[in-house]
Amino acid sequence: MKNTLKLPFILSLIVFLFNGFNNIYGQSDCLNIQINASFKDKPLMLNDTVYAFKNNHKIRFETLKFYLSSVTLIERALPVWKEEESFHLIDFEERDSNALCLEIPDGLTFDAIQFNLGIDSLTNVSGALGGDLDPTKGMYWTWQNGYINFKLEGTSNLCNNPKNEFQFHLGGYTAPWSNVQQIKLNVANTSAFNISFNLLQFVNELDLENLNHIMSPSDSAVDYAKLAAKCFSIK
């Protein structure tokens, strides 16, 4: 009788300890990738931090949000794993949103990660969607349908308008202003890596004196989306 009671107890203890260790060491069934944004090699601070850039001009950021979608792992130029329903809103005011958890098979090998900056055209015409694609997320245009792929807002003394504001809402899903950008980054250490967005690199290329608002699909929106796509790297 004693033995029959002992066995379930021991099994329960093993399961408990296993789960416990998993929790302690943060192990899970998925590949975690943190999405970071940096300014001068330091984590981006929104709202209160005023940065110097471009010969001591000033810039401050209030919002940085973008969509990463169609996440794919690649080995020797061929896709080896694609995430289903792959839409991630990265919002630097909601730090919890900035981690991808990719549920990949054990032992999968890859040498690059590919993803889209923005939302594909089919999804743009697919009606009301939920989760990160819910229109309440503030990334959907109402006067003309379509997702905002990338949103950067803030102030700079370079912006010649009453509040020195800049607002870049980059989107558009139809030609000639299809805005979504595909990005491929080589990965050396596939067990632990993060993706970083270099915001200084992006704003250094901006012409804030002459163009500080983009609110609709346009040539400039496409140019800025291409520029943003170049600012991602593996860290």
Binding site: N124, V125, S126, G127, A128, P135, T136, Y140, T142, W143, Q144, N145, G146
Partner: peptide
């Protein structure tokens, strides 16, 4: 301007001269 019936109501909800709100 609207590409799908689902999204139609967003426009009047948000327009300042119509419902003047947001979703």
């Amino acid at each position: 301007a609207i590409n799908n019936l689902d999204m139609q109501s967003l426009a009047p909800i948000s327009h300042p001269a119509e419902m003047g709100s947001n979703i």
